[in-house]
């Protein structure tokens, strides 16, 4: 806890700031430098990337192994577990997405399990991995990838491009443009009102662009906000001395719900957005 990190006395503010600092690397004037990247858009958050990739690999390994051994006979416990998850995702997707796509369901599965794993890192006591990192000479370590807005935004950008891709694929480029410009107010195309059409189209375009851009933004910020707040509360609880034990337990129990719920919401909204994108009006 505070003061035990081996760097001399530490104020609470320093402790919190330390926990919220990513391990960053960036290229400044041809030199790779660590942790002097504030404001540098090309900085790479090594810890977030590392944990998210490792967790993704765990997902791929566990589910891939189950998939490889999958047989129609009596399933093993691991296979049964994986099948429960897969079936859960499959039914959720089928309820929401009515088109036929080989991508949506695996996408939803990946998002759900991966985000769930990343959120789950929140339940590891906040000091364990950073302190272990300090022993190994790593100055900063932010353990939960989803408390890094870059990570959540990186995922939602992929979703954003998929939304555009599906819109164009199902409605054509014309349909995509029409969706951006001809809603919600249909511009008059003939008669005396035609002079107002460009203004209406411009108005629609602004409105619909905002709506479109708000989708990935809200998707990523919702997850980020929830996880960041949860992590911050864990850190604050860790500052309380002995009282942290029951509080930590209580908050962790509550957090299990948030972890699952946020992973589910991220997945579900992705599916909903994509199903909206591929729906014919």
């Amino acid at each position: 806890m505070a003061g035990e990190s081996g760097h001399g006395p530490q104020t609470s503010g320093e402790y919190i700031a330390h926990h919220l600092q990513n391990l960053q690397v960036c290229n400044v004037d041809g030199q790779w430098v660590w942790n002097q990247c504030a404001g540098n858009p090309m900085a790479l958050n090594v810890d977030s990337m590392f944990f998210s990739v490792v967790l993704g690999l765990i997902f791929a390994w566990v589910f891939g192994r189950a998939a490889k051994k999958a047989s129609k006979g009596k399933p093993g416990k691991m296979q049964a577990f994986v099948e429960i998850v897969v079936d859960f995702i499959d039914s959720s997707v089928k309820d929401t997405f009515h088109g036929k796509s080989d991508l949506i369901a695996p996408l939803a599965l990946t998002i759900f399990v991966w985000v769930f794993f990343m959120n789950l890192m929140d339940l590891i006591p906040v000091d364990w991995l950073p302190e272990a990192g300090l022993l190994l000479g790593i100055p900063y370590l932010k353990v939960v990838p989803t408390t890094d807005v870059n990570i959540t935004f990186g995922m939602s950008i992929a979703v954003f491009f998929l939304i555009i891709f599906y819109t164009v694929k199902n409605k054509g480029i014309g349909g995509f443009i029409a969706e951006l410009t001809l809603h919600p107010i249909a511009p008059p195309l003939r008669g005396p009102g035609i002079a107002a059409a460009p203004f209406i189209i411009a108005f629609n375009f602004i409105l619909e662009s905002v709506a479109l851009l708000a989708k990935p933004l809200s998707l990523s910020l919702r997850l980020f906000g929830n996880m960041f707040a949860g992590e911050l509360i864990f850190i604050l609880i860790a500052l309380l001395g002995l009282w942290q034990l029951p509080l930590h337990f209580a908050w962790a129990v509550f957090h299990i719900l948030i972890v699952t719920l946020q992973a589910f919401i991220f997945m579900m909204l992705t599916v909903v957005y994509l199903s909206l994108a591929s729906e014919k009006h």
Binding site: M42, N45, F59, G64, V86, P106, T110, I111, W114, N150
Partner: peptide, 26 residues
């Protein structure tokens, strides 16, 4: 960079899932 890296990582994992995980299990 992190953003881009995460997007790439996500594409790879989704592709892996689509190719090797989802079909055999289904």
């Amino acid at each position: 960079m992190t953003l881009l890296g995460q997007t790439i990582a996500m594409i790879i994992f989704v592709w892996f899932c689509m190719k090797f995980i989802w079909p055999p299990i289904m």
